[in-house]
Amino acid sequence: MVDVAWQHEDEASQDVAERARVLQKLKASDTFFRILTRSAAIFVLMMLGGVIISLISGSIPAFREFGFSFVSTQIWNPVTEKFGAVAPIYGTIVTSFLAMLIAVPFGLLIAMFLTELCPLWLRRPIGIAIELLAGIPSIIYGIWGLFVLAPFFADHVQPTLIAATRNIPVLSSLFAGPPYGIGIFTASIILAIMVLPFITSISRDVFDAVPPVLKEAAYGLGCSTWEVMRFVVLPYTRVGVIGGVMLGLGRALGETMAVTFVIGNAHKINASLLAPGTTIAATIANEFTEAVGDLYTSSLIALGLILFVITFIVLALARFLLMRIEGKVG
């Protein structure tokens, strides 16, 4: 009996020791995982901080030389070393705004069609086509825009717009001038085509995530497809839709090569959308390799800092908008 008792006690102590080893192993792995994830997050913050510090330090000579006039004048003359960022800032904002103005409605309508109205045999081909559009390199869009879209616009679209708006007070200024084919309007169309797949794909995915019972209940009450999308699907997926729009806007603000091919690269603000212009990214891409002198290089880096600030402001406004929406919903 004593031997049996000692045997049971020994087995119990071994079991306790084994459990302790397992718990210690799990604790060690959990600690390692926590340290690894925290290190990854800190690394991202360090990279972002390094980028910010590099942009600020590189742009100091330009801001010290020109001061506030750097963001208030459109003079850009590397020969006399007089630089102003108004024209690139204007081109970046206008082209991105026009691109989103075109891409957001089309993207949402395509996503609605794919999730609610599209036949099953057609849904997959359209989905694959959208994914292929998202995977095309930007330089391909630029080449296509320069050699196909720009000549077509110069021969057919822009002359029609100029003739149709000639006697309309505001539109006559927006669509004035010779039909070059290239310009802010063409760059905006290219950007809209480029961001359309991102908005459509994300919107389609969040629309598919809506519980079917919500839509079935709305249909049961007699709602039409448009009413279901407007009053059920869009409110339920507003966060995802806004996230997709912000992703597309970020792509539009920072797009370089495609815009460089078709915008005309003119450092001048013109009221006409058909006139050539430039953007921050296009200016940096065109001139950074040719920048001679510290002031010229610093001015280009300052443009990069301004683009970073614009992107940050846009994302902050989007986050604030989401917070307001969530606060109203409760």
Rank of each mutant, 00 (worst) to 15 (best):
L317K: 06
A275V: 05
I128L: 13
S72R: 14
R324H: 13
I143S: 00
L45G: 11
G142A: 05
I42G: 05
T160C: 06
S272L: 09
V239M: 11
F68K: 12
A252V: 06
L149F: 06
F63C: 01
A40G: 11
A40Q: 12
C223Y: 09
E287A: 10
S138T: 15
V329I: 14
A316I: 11
R251T: 02
V79W: 09
I143K: 07
F288I: 12
A163L: 11
V44K: 10
G67L: 08
L108H: 01
I139Y: 10
V71N: 03
L109Q: 12
L108S: 04
T311C: 15
Y180G: 09
A85Q: 02
A62G: 10
L132K: 05
A291T: 07
E131Y: 03
H267Y: 14
L305S: 04
I168S: 09
E11C: 09
T297A: 13
C223G: 08
L108Y: 00
A134D: 05
D155V: 08
A316L: 15
A291N: 05
A111K: 02
R34L: 14
R21L: 14
G293H: 05
D3K: 15
V241Q: 01
V22I: 14
F320K: 11
G181T: 01
Q74H: 08
V4I: 15
K268F: 08
E287C: 08
D205K: 03
I56W: 07
K328D: 09
V228R: 04
F207S: 00
S299I: 03
I199D: 02
E9A: 14
L295E: 02
P178E: 12
L305Q: 00
I242D: 01
A209P: 02
Y236W: 15
A103R: 00
T289P: 00
T237R: 02
F43P: 01
L315A: 14
A99K: 04
L253D: 04
L191Q: 06
P178H: 08
L55D: 04
I42H: 12
K82S: 13
I162A: 09
I184R: 01
V86I: 12
A316F: 15
G243N: 08
L120S: 14
L174K: 10
F106R: 00
P179G: 01
A285H: 13
F231H: 14
Q14D: 13
G327Q: 13
T95G: 05
T186N: 06
A150I: 06
M257I: 11
V228A: 10
P105S: 06
R64P: 02
A99M: 07
T186S: 03
V195Q: 03
V44L: 14
T289M: 06
L253G: 02
I190L: 05
I56R: 02
S188I: 09
P88A: 10
P159T: 06
S57I: 11
I242T: 07
G220W: 13
D30K: 15
A150R: 00
L253N: 02
V79I: 14
N270Q: 11
A187W: 04
F185G: 04
W121M: 11
L133W: 04
V86P: 02
L48D: 04
I60R: 07
K215S: 09
I93D: 05
F320G: 08
F288K: 05
T200L: 08
Q24F: 09
A99V: 10
I313C: 11
T165C: 10
A87E: 03
L122P: 06
E65T: 12
G91V: 06
S69L: 07
G293F: 08
P169S: 08
